[in-house]
Write a protein that binds this DNA or RNA. Structure first.
Lengths: 102, 102
DNA sequence: TAGCTACTTTCCATATTGGAAAGTAAGGGG
DNA sequence: CCCCTTACTTTCCAATATGGAAAGTAGCTA
């Protein structure tokens, strides 16, 4: 059943969005992700922790121009989880006539 | 931005699924929806209440064969909300801001 | 009137989310 | 060398949500 493939880790919109950005962009830094989800530093950090704790993302801390920069990217497991989750969402939604909303 | 179209009412998988079933099937009864989301009576009832409270669904209570039968269907607002929410999900997943201008 | 069916609401425990604020780490300035 | 700033991270706490059990309500039948 579709619900069985729904991933609780990716259910919160902010986390889905982070995963989607990483799935599409390969890599994104903290500030960018924070801006995208529109949350505070702490919340952004906690969402990233949730993803790394689930083994879905890894953080790269680098010193660029003498500044700390943390960027994130999906792990193979993360991409797989994202794909499965999206497939589950499509399974739920598909069949309905909502392919092209008007 | 995509997140702005994400509807909190439709974010929980169980509710998305109920909405999708109703969008697809026009009408579904309580027992069927309960089976689909795999929840208890109380939880099913509460999810339906959440949808009706949001003005997204209406319940039809009928006596069929002397038995109470409650079925649900989406309101126009519910269908619109569902379509918007699905479009928002697609926008997030696709990465590109492919939101239909309205 | 009792009993059954079909939900609905209440009660309660657990979990999640969010922000503020404090904490940590690394680098630059004085 | 110490302090300050930047860039997160973690802690603390309030608000909300979710889930099931159990009690409650309503319509029907016997």
């Amino acid at each position: 059943m579709a619900l069985s493939s729904i991933d609780p880790v990716l259910t919160p919109p902010a986390r889905l969005q982070i995963a989607a950005v990483l799935a599409n962009a390969q890599d994104a830094d903290f500030a960018r992700l924070k801006a995208i989800i529109g949350a505070s530093d702490s919340v952004t950090s906690k969402h990233l922790s949730a993803l790394t704790d689930a083994g879905y993302a890894v953080l790269h801390k680098a010193s660029i121009d003498g500044r700390q920069r943390t960027s994130a990217s999906l792990t193979r497991a993360g991409r797989k989880a994202f794909d499965r989750h999206v497939a589950a969402l499509r399974a739920i939604v598909d069949g309905s006539t909502t392919q092209a909303a008007e």
